[in-house]
Design a protein around this nucleic acid. Sequence first.
DNA 1: CGGTTGTTTGAGGACGTTCAAGTACTGTGG
DNA 2: CCACAGTACTTGAACGTCCTCAAACAACCG
Lengths: 240, 240
Amino acid sequence: MRDADRTLAKQCSLFRDLQPEALARLLEDAFVQSLPKGAVLFEQGARPQFLHVILSGRVALVGGLTQEGSVVVEFFNAGDPLIVPAVVLDLEYLLSAEVVADARILMISAALFRTQLDRELALARAATRLLSAHWRRLILQIKQLKLLAATPRLGAYLLSLARTENGRARVRLNEERRLLATRLGMTPESLSRAFARLRDHGVSAAGDWVEIEEVSRLRRYVESRPTAARRRSLAAPSAK
Amino acid sequence: MRDADRTLAKQCSLFRDLQPEALARLLEDAFVQSLPKGAVLFEQGARPQFLHVILSGRVALVGGLTQEGSVVVEFFNAGDPLIVPAVVLDLEYLLSAEVVADARILMISAALFRTQLDRELALARAATRLLSAHWRRLILQIKQLKLLAATPRLGAYLLSLARTENGRARVRLNEERRLLATRLGMTPESLSRAFARLRDHGVSAAGDWVEIEEVSRLRRYVESRPTAARRRSLAAPSAK
DNA sequence: CGGTTGTTTGAGGACGTTCAAGTACTGTGG
DNA sequence: CCACAGTACTTGAACGTCCTCAAACAACCG
């Protein structure tokens, strides 16, 4: 394992607060793989053997229900581990992991990670925080799937990638449109049309790059059209 | 705080592995509220003041994107805490919590919970496991939203409630149809029609109770019709 | 018992998928 | 360097599903 990789690992939120010796123990038998786009880290249904940590690159978590189709549930980037819940609980993966942008992957023994998690408070704490942050991402996605029609859903996704609150923003879409489409819960055709419709709201897409003319304007558009399952579910809170 | 409540609290997966004195510290200033259906524990956007633990009853986590609509993201039952991620990170709630079946709620100071989480390995471990289990539920829901049409989606939900692998099963739907509909990402009308269509597959609903004639038959139906965003997202893994 | 609220059913329409064809892009071999 | 194949993305037309609106029905509660 190279020093550069060790430095990258140290920066991950999971490991940042570990004592040097605790980190060393975790990384003792760990190794790094350099994987090209298209590589599959593990498959849905398998039992976790490693905790994979993305040192660089981009990975899609994809999953299916039948053998038929499968969709991207979420993309993960440098610094993120895959997939803590399956490793922690030692349960079969609910998702497969596929590299979508050439990646360096740190592989840590799943069993070792579990035992260290049981011993090291700092690690358990970091895992709790990391899982908490990821939970919130999933909640957001579920809300967007249920409340937003296809076009505003794409808009919301772009907004979540934009750093600024208002003004112009450029966003890079590393992954293929085909994959992005399933992440957003639509077909590639619908995604294409959604991009076309966003043009009227100051969004221009060219290749990997998307330009948002005015972030606040796009946000206004997104918030103005819920359109999917619009009915509100709560009556006025009638405390009887 | 009554002894009966203390006993219930001790059984929660979060607290089960705690030393008695650690649990005592956590519960020192804690108290219990008995809340009727319709009560709102906290609202989206607020900062967490307590970690709420459901001792009995049922709670819906509902959220919106605009002021317009809001949907149920998930239901939680006795033993589950609400909502660990927001409390851990001390970030505003992404969801509101509404009681859907009369509940007893244990309220623990959020600040105290955070400090104990930073001190008690057993607590941090339990939190990691709990968050991991919840993560998996959300993943499942996202997959079902993206891959299943309305009717099979309801079928999959019913199957997840049925204990048995095959044979007859009875399932209780505690919550109003209106709420269940949004949990499943559809309107009440669509839910009603979905139930009607499932009748042809051995599912009969009457009031709170749903009867599945033959679980394996329903599962076969669910798995045979993906129908939403059917396109597969992955090509054959072409390692170049 | 009437009013309110929640659920079901029907008809019409919007949105997104499907299927099919056309266009742009990428890498390969001539 | 260009022709070409392969792939991905786009665009168009038809269809189906689900949403919307409206009304009837059932259940609950004062």
